[in-house]
Amino acid sequence: MATTRAILVDITKCIGCRSCEQACKQIHGFPMDTEAKLSPTALTIVEERGDRFVRRMCMHCQEPACASACLVGALKKTAAGPVTYDGSKCIGCRYCLVACPFSVPRYEWTKLVPYVTKCDMCAGRQAKGQAPACVEACPVQASIVGNRDDILEEAERRILNDSKYVKHIYGSEEAGGTSVFFISDVPFEKLGFAAAPKQAMPLLTASALGDGPTVILVGGALLSGLYWITQRRALVALAEAREKSIKERN
């Protein structure tokens, strides 16, 4: 996974110019008006939190909850880093919206054939060697892209060398690790970051799913055993009754 790509957002550098928002909308052909929240036509947005600007987007988890939840496998973690969505498989159950610990996926509620929308880290552009549109558009390099290991190293270097930073890389542990990282000089909970569990989300359901075969084997054996006893009891009762009637006849 050395070639896995990741994005680092340095909140101390962001000037709130919304170039990333605009670039994202442009590349997807969405209407250009600014939106306050993520929506089907705003896959990344810049929020004002006090005097800081916080970018929201898909975190591209290493082990995504959405991909584990999707029953038809429309959502996938690619080897290159992005979590992608294949609309042709989607049945519209919206379990991904329920599952995402960062509440990122959006649904096209207004459409008659609605799909799920979310940032795909410009997987297509990245495959051609280009940077994601939002990163490319950033005039102050508040967002940078690179190999995940290098990006993490860079983030660590920054927070260790400068005392203003909070000593945590948001995304390094959240949901078991992501491919989008945030560093900040204001505590993350004050910037509206979700307190996601610090474990890979699919683990939460894996244990229950792992119990399935056991339930079938043990339960099946137990129920068959009970049925055998029931059957045997009935046979014994029948035989006894027959014996009794023969005796009475004699």
């Binding site: 991909a67 584990s68 939840a69 999707c70 029953l71 038809v72 496998g73 429309a74 498989k89 159950c93 379990y95 699919p202 359901t205 894996a206 229950a208 799913l209 399935g212």
Partner: peptide, 11 residues
């Protein structure tokens, strides 16, 4: 289309 990691798939 199978995803055996999904609870909803089993459901």
């Amino acid at each position: 289309m199978w995803n055996r990691h999904s609870v909803l798939f089993e459901v």
